[in-house]
Nucleic acid binder design. Structure first.
Length: 607
RNA sequence: CGGGACGUAGCGCAGCCUGGUAGCGCACUUGCUUGGGGUGCAAGGGGUCGCGAGUUCAAAUCUCGCCGUCCCGACCA
């Protein structure tokens, strides 16, 4: 029997001043966690019970589709060199040396170790498909740990990897994970959404994230209120209302006029220029100048050391000019996708002047010899956002101080290297599927499924023989769930000023029995009797037998996340206790003799 | 890594400007009291004032350096 009086559940009336978000404050106040350092937390009794239950659910569901492994957190440098990520991970990876001076790191994720096993062991298509998973501690040296358990440097992750002979097989493995993840999050009692995610340029053909809406989240999620469309900001699309182009000016001639320079003294921002010329920003072009930085994030399989990379950098750095509609915002992830994973940085003013002979605020597309296609690395690339395709008579920079140009028409007056989706969606724009207005929310990512493709199997040399005896690389998927984030998200979405409530499936206890007066023998006996009965029926029950005033116990019971409370008071003489549902605070009298049946009735059918 | 704030008892804070015996609330201990929403009374225990230098007769307080934590930004397969 779990007696509160004997347990360590250090509840706090006030949250530490450090805590900002609800889940952080409440998990500390409820005695679930304590902070050890920035982004490093200890789980105490209650917190550990909850995460253990979450892991049990994850295991049960994952065991239906895969096999559990347990891989080392301590990894030798070599396998990370093999995949090219020793370098790519940069400062985000914890690194250390052993006594012999050999480089080691703490795993941030386990594609390398899993693929290493695969390359050593898998030989034939007959061994495929495989789904391997583990529940493991990950380490990431976050530049800025924050928001309590939301962004930490050490955390538990369930990570799974699939190996298939072909893309069709990967589709099946991916779908299995999708369904499994839905079951896991459903069982954890979360309200979540599944969104299309940015899959990067690394051959990742599909990627979805499981998100929980909360103001504490760090991701921006675009979703449709009417249909099921939902996507990460980095991927989201929208329909734009048609824009009526400006009429060409001049002697009444039809069609499109040629570019005309206009004097725009002191007008630097889009808003200034639009106002000055008496037009809406939708008729203007926003010009952004970027410089590609050397490394190809997705690529570099062969990490030959600093010198070679720097040399390559010198060759590959390239100017990239972006054109967007004046009122649109550039999205870096989309830009990266358009550039096949290349990193970019904004150009310096003097670079713009040197390259384009234009002052920084007045850059425009005219008179520059743009690259013909994306592979033309000798000339600057002109990337034009799709929203400008088909538009006419736009206003843009004249490459000349205090001058803009009217009557710019893409494809006519200048020739883009390519069109691409480069802009961020904003709230209220139309859903690409159904046209209803889109909303944007912040959310926290609790799971991610990802079609990896061949990146790791190829770079690390995993090969199997196919039906024809031909050697091929297996195609992989990777699938993650943040264990603590399930807890955190659950707290974020179910709390009030007095505390939080978890689903019975992941709460440290399903019921707390409050003995309202521990000096009263009848009450005390009845309380223990109820606990015994419920435990016999398989419930996790906490008995609050502390010698405290009822008010103190009620406050604590409300705080600590337990979904049901039984108040044992004077009515025991009438065989009656009060059952309180924490989420609704709904109270009802229940006969002690029928207490087990009462709770069995509340249980989900499948168990 | 850039910008900002903070560091005094387990938690929340005052004291610092104007240098001189370290304080409040909660929590904790003991006794009494109370017993359905953090009961009341009384008596107690607990602090290297983040660390290190410096100035001074004297430093929580002034100066410098370091460390730590939080927030904004950058970053976030």
């Amino acid at each position: 029997m779990h007696r509160w009086s004997q347990l360590f559940i250090p509840t706090l009336r006030e949250a530490p001043a450090d805590a900002e978000v609800a889940s952080h404050k409440l998990l500390v106040r409820a005695g679930y966690i304590r902070q050890l350092g920035a982004g490093i937390y200890s789980f105490l009794f209650m917190g550990n019970r909850s995460t253990q239950k979450i892991m049990a659910i994850v295991r049960q569901e994952m065991d239906k589709i895969g096999q559990e492994f347990y891989l080392p957190a301590l990894n030798p440098r070599e396998i990370w060199e093999a995949s090219g990520r020793w370098k790519v991970m940069g400062e985000n990876m914890f690194r250390l040396k052993d006594r012999k001076g050999a480089d080691l790191c703490l795993g941030m994720t386990h594609e390398e170790v899993m693929t290493d096993i695969a390359r050593k062991e898998l030989r034939s298509y007959k061994q495929l498909p495989q789904i391997w998973y583990q529940i493991q501690t990950k380490f990431r040296d976050e530049p800025r740990p924050k928001s309590g358990l939301l962004r930490v440097r050490q955390f538990i992750m369930k990570d799974a990897y699939s190996f298939d002979i072909d893309a069709a097989g990967l589709d099946v493995s991916y779908q299995k994970h999708y369904e499994t993840y839905c079951r896991i999050f459903d069982r954890c009692g979360l309200r979540y959404m599944v969104i299309d995610a940015h899959s990067g340029a690394m051959g990742g053909s599909q990627s979805q994230e499981f998100m929980v809406r909360t103001p504490a989240g760090e991701d921006q999620v675009v979703s449709c209120g009417k249909c099921t469309y939902a996507a990460n900001m980095e991927k989201a699309a929208s329909k734009l209302p048609a824009v009526e182009d400006l009429k060409p000016e001049g002697n009444g001639q039809l069609g499109i006029a040629g570019p005309i320079e206009v004097h725009t003294p002191g007008q630097k921002t889009i808003e200034d220029v639009a106002r000055f010329l008496g037009v809406s920003p939708v008729h203007t072009i926003k010009t952004l100048a970027m410089m590609s930085t050397a490394e190809n994030k997705a690529g570099d399989k062969d990490d030959k050391g600093d010198k070679d990379n720097k040399k390559a950098a010198g060759i590959r750095a390239q100017a990239i000019v972006l054109l967007l509609r004046g009122d649109h915002q550039m999205n870096e992830a989309k830009l990266s996708t358009a550039l096949a994973g290349k990193d970019t940085r904004p150009m310096q003013e003097d670079e713009i002047r040197d390259l384009f002979q234009s002052p920084a605020g007045y850059l425009g597309p005219l008179g520059i010899d743009w690259a013909k296609d994306m592979n033309d690395s000798a000339k600057p690339i002109l990337l034009v956002d799709q929203a400008l395709a088909g538009r006419t008579n736009l206003i843009g920079g004249a490459n000349k101080d205090e001058y803009h140009v009217k009557h710019l028409t893409p494809g006519k007056n200048f020739h883009p290297t390519a069109y691409a989706d480069l802009r961020s969606v904003t709230a209220g724009e139309e859903c690409p599927n159904c046209g209803a207005p889109l909303r944007i929310d912040t959310a926290v990512e609790i799971g991610h499924i990802f079609k990896l493709g061949y990146k790791y199997s190829e770079s690390m040399g995993a090969r199997v023989l196919d039906h024809n005896g031909k050697e091929i690389a297996p195609i992989m998927g990777s699938y993650g769930i943040g264990i603590e984030r399930i807890l955190t998200a659950a707290v974020e979405q179910s709390n009030d000023e007095n505390g939080f409530w978890l689903s019975p499936s992941i709460a440290p206890f399903e019921v707390v029995v409050v003995s309202t007066n521990s000096k009263d023998e009848a009450i005390r006996n009845a309380s223990e009797d109820i606990v015994r009965k419920l435990e016999a029926a398989g419930f996790d029950v906490l008995l609050d037998d502390r010698d405290e005033r009822p008010g103190v116990k009620f406050k604590d019971a409300d705080l600590v996340g337990i979904p049901f409370r039984i108040n044992v008071g004077k009515k025991v003489t009438e065989d009656t206790v009060e059952v309180v549902q924490r989420s609704t605070l709904h109270k009802e009298d229940v006969k002690i003799s029928a207490i087990t049946e009462h709770f069995q009735g509340l249980r989900p059918a499948s168990r």
